[in-house]
Computed example of a mutant assay.
Amino acid sequence: MSMPFDVWGQRGWASVEVAGESHHAKAIRTVLGNDFKPSGTEVRVDVELVPEPDNRHDRHAVAVRAGKHLLGYLPREEAVRYSPILSRLVSQGWTPRVMARVWGSEWEGYEDRRHREFHGSVRLDLAEPHMLAPANAAPSSTHRLLPYGHAIQVTGEEQHLDTLSAWLRPEGECWVHATLHEVVQQTARASRTVVEVRIDDERIGQLTPKMSGDMIPTIQHLAEQDTITTVRAIVKGNRIKTEVVLHALRAHELPDTWLESRASTQQARAAAPTVPAPPAPNVTTATPASEPIPPPPTSFRFNPPPDWPPPPPGWTPPNGWRPDAAWPPAPPGWSWWVASWD
């Protein structure tokens, strides 16, 4: 049985239009509920993104469903980008979910004024494919993930570039699980308590004294429950300049309902899905059809093997894309990328 997973990177606004709503007007109208007003009604609901590799029209098809109701599909060009990571999440036992803005209205028909026509639309709050899931697993010990909040800048990352290099991505950024820890620092004249930030239990920086003061009450509250404070973090940059930005509610922003609940060991150990690091570029060894295609070097274009379906002009595999398992494997030593002027 799969578990629901609210994909990361949602920011509260829906910008991705769903295709084919006109074919699913009845389902959209049902989702709008009994409070629907013909002049126009909008609701926000969680919807599931369901890859359909056996879809006879498009093997990259991704259905958008609200419970048992099919509301439409990701546009074809978006489905090509999103289906690989969504399929991977499904294969790991997760059901990807996002927030959707569902809108609908009715007006008189052009030819028959006694007949009212319904028109609906669905838009999704969907981040870029590489930002849908974290690149590392959540802590194996009991932990709680703080609710998403405004950006919090980590300081001192320049002292930990070697550690952070493991999280650099071709896209320039990725999500990770980070943990917060209360530590005492000794200065020349006195000591001070600050928050240390770790990724996979390795220090990668700290919060300013002022921001530490906003987070320490939460850390202490969870520590009393033998629970580690975990947050969403974005690692972005390159090997000479890397930044880490947390997204979490501060102590005074946490709702009482969150503070009153406790993390169960079972819930805490249900690690979120991950997006593994992409393979190194310039791979020249044989790559089975089931493995991801390596990312392109600069000024190179994708070179599909013989007997593969030809890709659209200018298309390159998005991060984590895998060819269809039914396609023949690439010949040994196949060059995935050739100079763009070839």
Rank of each mutant, 00 (worst) to 15 (best):
residue 67 G to Q: 01
residue 68 K to P: 03
residue 68 K to Q: 15
residue 71 L to F: 02
residue 73 Y to G: 10
residue 73 Y to I: 10
residue 74 L to R: 14
residue 75 P to R: 15
residue 77 E to Q: 07
residue 78 E to V: 08
residue 79 A to H: 13
residue 80 V to E: 09
residue 82 Y to G: 02
residue 83 S to I: 06
residue 85 I to G: 00
residue 85 I to R: 01
residue 85 I to W: 04
residue 86 L to R: 08
residue 87 S to W: 03
residue 87 S to Y: 02
residue 88 R to V: 02
residue 89 L to W: 00
residue 89 L to D: 06
residue 89 L to M: 08
residue 91 S to Q: 02
residue 92 Q to D: 09
residue 92 Q to P: 13
residue 93 G to V: 00
residue 93 G to W: 01
residue 95 T to L: 14
residue 96 P to E: 11
residue 99 M to A: 12
residue 101 R to K: 03
residue 101 R to Y: 01
residue 102 V to C: 04
residue 104 G to H: 02
residue 104 G to D: 03
residue 105 S to F: 02
residue 105 S to T: 09
residue 106 E to K: 10
residue 107 W to K: 14
residue 108 E to H: 10
residue 109 G to I: 00
residue 112 D to C: 13
residue 113 R to Y: 04
residue 114 R to F: 12
residue 115 H to V: 13
residue 115 H to K: 15
residue 116 R to K: 15
residue 117 E to K: 12
residue 118 F to D: 09
residue 118 F to V: 12
residue 121 S to R: 14
residue 121 S to P: 03
residue 122 V to I: 03
residue 123 R to C: 13
residue 124 L to M: 12
residue 125 D to R: 12
residue 126 L to G: 12
residue 128 E to F: 05
residue 128 E to P: 06
residue 128 E to Q: 08
residue 130 H to D: 00
residue 130 H to V: 01
residue 131 M to V: 09
residue 131 M to P: 02
residue 132 L to K: 07
residue 136 N to T: 14
residue 138 A to Q: 07
residue 140 S to C: 13
residue 140 S to P: 07
residue 141 S to H: 13
residue 142 T to C: 10
residue 144 R to K: 11
residue 144 R to Y: 03
residue 146 L to R: 11
residue 147 P to N: 03
residue 147 P to V: 03
residue 148 Y to R: 07
residue 149 G to N: 00
residue 150 H to M: 07
residue 150 H to S: 12
residue 151 A to C: 04
residue 151 A to F: 05
residue 151 A to H: 10
residue 151 A to D: 04
residue 152 I to H: 02
residue 153 Q to W: 15
residue 154 V to I: 02
residue 155 T to Y: 09
residue 155 T to H: 12
residue 157 E to K: 11
residue 160 H to F: 14
residue 161 L to V: 13
residue 162 D to T: 10
residue 163 T to W: 10
residue 163 T to C: 01
residue 165 S to T: 11
residue 168 L to H: 14
residue 168 L to A: 07
residue 170 P to A: 08
residue 172 G to Q: 08
residue 174 C to V: 13
